[in-house]
Simulated scan of single mutants.
Amino acid sequence: MSQDAIKLPVDVACILNLLPHRYPFLLIDRVVELDAHKRIRALKNVTFNEPYFQGHFPGRPVMPGVLVIEAMAQAGGLLTQLSLPRDAIGEGKLFYLVKVDNARFNRMVVPGDQLDIEVVLKRNIRNMALYECSARVDGKVVASAEILCAEGKEE
């Protein structure tokens, strides 16, 4: 699957081949835009059936901010994976979240919202990638952060 062959939208079946995350921690449902090595736009549909809503908070469900950050990091991972040469996509490299800077939360994310996540690659530094991330609901920014991810070492 080269960048030329990537057919948008990228669905969850393809995402499962690119990210190691599984239920209940896969937080990206679809990739709708991709500019390889530069930018990605992905969606997360927030439903009342999310397991974290049972305790966060009973009667007033709010998506935890750390999970919004994680969704942005997963979108960054997809940008990295989908930008690889065709024969390297999905080869099993793992990238880990190592730093979050300038995190801002502008409003709560609740059931029925659709997170529209945009991640821009600011720079690659050896085995690390620095991303500028934002999440919107109905066109309004609900969260933003700079996220640094690093490739894990093989053991």
Score class of each variant (00 low, 15 high):
69 I>V: 11
117 I>H: 06
86 R>D: 10
89 I>D: 00
31 V>F: 12
10 V>H: 11
13 A>W: 15
13 A>G: 14
139 G>R: 06
79 L>H: 06
88 A>V: 01
99 K>F: 04
83 S>L: 06
34 L>R: 08
15 I>Q: 01
16 L>V: 09
133 C>L: 07
51 P>C: 10
145 A>R: 09
148 L>M: 14
136 R>F: 12
69 I>F: 03
76 G>E: 09
42 A>N: 03
81 Q>K: 02
139 G>M: 11
95 F>P: 03
1 M>H: 11
150 A>H: 01
79 L>Q: 09
43 L>I: 05
71 A>G: 05
73 A>D: 01
118 E>C: 10
125 I>P: 00
62 V>K: 08
105 F>Y: 14
137 V>D: 10
128 M>D: 07
97 L>W: 13
151 E>P: 05
20 P>W: 04
8 L>Q: 09
153 K>V: 12
132 E>V: 10
145 A>Y: 01
2 S>R: 15
57 F>P: 03
95 F>V: 10
5 A>V: 09
95 F>Y: 08
8 L>H: 09
155 E>A: 07
51 P>V: 06
20 P>D: 06
115 L>D: 01
129 A>W: 05
96 Y>I: 04
56 H>E: 06
120 V>D: 13
35 D>M: 12
8 L>P: 07
60 R>D: 12
113 D>W: 13
7 K>Y: 03
121 L>C: 14
81 Q>E: 14
3 Q>F: 15
44 K>S: 00
106 N>D: 12
51 P>H: 11
23 Y>L: 06
68 V>M: 05
53 F>Q: 07
118 E>Y: 03
123 R>Y: 13
76 G>T: 06
110 V>C: 14
117 I>W: 02
87 D>N: 10
130 L>W: 09
8 L>S: 08
60 R>N: 14
15 I>G: 02
112 G>K: 12
148 L>P: 00
5 A>E: 14
42 A>M: 03
90 G>T: 01
143 A>K: 06
131 Y>A: 01
79 L>I: 10
91 E>F: 05
61 P>S: 05
51 P>Q: 11
121 L>W: 13
60 R>E: 08
100 V>H: 05
148 L>D: 07
66 V>Y: 00
18 L>N: 01
63 M>A: 06
93 K>D: 05
155 E>K: 10
153 K>Y: 08
86 R>W: 06
69 I>E: 00
42 A>T: 00
106 N>L: 15
48 F>L: 15
135 A>L: 10
36 A>T: 12
122 K>Y: 13
47 T>G: 12
147 I>H: 02
34 L>A: 06
13 A>T: 15
3 Q>A: 13
111 P>L: 12
147 I>T: 00
2 S>I: 04
2 S>W: 11
84 L>N: 05
127 N>V: 07
122 K>R: 15
34 L>C: 10
92 G>Y: 07
55 G>S: 07
3 Q>H: 15
